[in-house]
Structures are given as C-alpha cells and as structure tokens.
Amino acid sequence: MSLLVITIISLCAIGVVAAIILYVASKKFHVIEDPRIDKVEEALPAANCGGCGFPGCRAFAEATVKADDLGDLYCPVGGSDTMAKVASILGQEVEDKKRQIAVLRCNGACEHRPKTNIYDGATSCSVASLTYGGDTGCEYGCLGMGECVDACNFNAMYMDESTGLPVVIEDNCVACNACVEACPKDLLELRNVGPKSRRIFVSCRNEAKGAIAKKSCEVACIGCSKCFKECKFDAITIANNLAYIDDDKCVLCRKCVPVCPTNAIHELNFPPRREPRKDKAPAKPKIENIEKPIVLKKPKEEVKDNQSTNDIKKEE
C-alpha cells in the first residue's frame, strides 16, 4: 500500500516540478509576435508549397505583415480571393491578379520526335540535360523522366505513357511554380487561365533553325512567322526562330492556329471549329488525345465527343 502511495506522490511531485519549469520557460522565453501573423496565416491555404517564394505559409504571412506594399507578394494557390482577405487583415489594398496555370510548351510525343539514341544514365531530367541534349534530335524538348511530376505537391501532373510527356490536370493545378523550377529545359510556363479556361500558346521551345527543328520534330515551331503576320494584336513575337504568344495581349481569336504549318500552336478548351480544316495534318487528332484528360472540367463536351465517335463507328 505504502508503495502505491509513494508512487502517486512522487509522480505528482515530478508533474508539479515539470509544470513549474515549463511555466517559467514559457514566460522567460516568450517572443512577442505580431498577432496579425497568425491571422494572415489562417487566411492562407496552408499548402506550404513554396509557390510564393517563401518556405511555407508562415514565412509568407510574416513577410506580408512586414511589407509596406503587397504588390510583390502573391499566393498563387489562394489567388486573388486570399490576397484580398490578407489585404483586409492588414488594412492594405491589393490588385486583382489573373489566375494562372502551368502549361507544357513541348509537344514532342514519341511519334513526332524519333529517338536518336538510348539514354542510360540516372533517371532524372536534370542529370540527362547536364549530360547532353536529349535522346531525340531536339535538344530543347521534354526529356520525359517526370521531374516536374515529382515536384508537384498537388497531384496536378502525371506522365502520359503513350506520348512520354507530362500532362497538367487543370482542376488541381494551383500555379505554385514548382514544376516550372524543376524543369531543366524550362518547358513549363505559368500562363493566364483565360476566360472559360481557353488558352492559346506555342507548344514548342525549339530555338534551332527551321530545317533542323523540323527534322528533329514534326511539330516543332520553325519560326516561319506566319502566325506573326496573322496576328492583329501584337501578341506574337518571334525570337531565336521561335514564336511566343503573350497571354496578356492575346484575345483568343484563334486565327494563328490554322496558319501554323507544323501545328505547333495549341488551343485548349475551345468548342470545335465549324468548318473542318482543309489541310488536316496528322498531328491534330493526336493533340486532342493528349488533352483529353485536361478537358475533365466539361463532361458534356466529352460526352459529345464520345457520341460523335460512336456515330462514326455506326456509320462505318
């Protein structure tokens, strides 16, 4: 019995001593923090992705509280809504920024870009790009080892086995910039989501001369400037044999898409064209295949697509 009593008493004593130590320590080492940091942190999405350029949401919250102007600080995951909340907590104002999304600027799927050698090094895009130009003739294109997919914390990317290219899942992408930084070839770009998620971009980064680019990849941009001439809004620039569409200037008129001789200009989430294109290049249907997973947002359209294919089958 006495053993039990001693045990209980000694345990209680230890508890009391520990509590006193903890109390003293918490008072003595108390750090006075701006209470607004906690409030801002609460408003943030707590993804801790680092997309804002700070290590975690807490660090971002501290930075916003310290900053005089929120202009340079932006949480890509939360977007403008979150930034508005943060601004209201801090009594500041913030401009509306357009929501962005990651876009892959390479369409060098296996069938468009023949392999010229066999890579046998470590399975890592950065190792391969440090070693040489890549296992196809195009030294600017995707290496297909999925470092961007590994970098994505939001399950917004996967490797398409049939094309060997990564695919961005539109619904999950928060534009945190992780994949953009991971890609050693600088193929991913954050672009404006656009109205109804409609986007037009040049899906190529090949800066080689037209003939070389075309030889190494069927769907490469050859820098022919046909799109440049077509565009009436100054949205297209040509530099280093490569066209680039400025997404702030582009009005999504789609006129540049059909003029591209190599189908390097992609349009996403547009309704099908009324007139079928005359020069139906072989690459076009394949592009649709690649983007099917992206069209998740609009199940109706997908159904339509399926119906039409079914119809064709029936007709046959």
Binding site: N117, I118, A122, V127, T131
Partner: peptide, 8 residues
C-alpha cells in the same frame, strides 16, 4: 545505329 548515352 543508335548509341547508348550515359554520364561518365
């Protein structure tokens, strides 16, 4: 023929 490429 296609050659095998790897870092040294």
């Amino acid at each position: 023929n296609q050659f095998v490429i790897s870092p040294s």
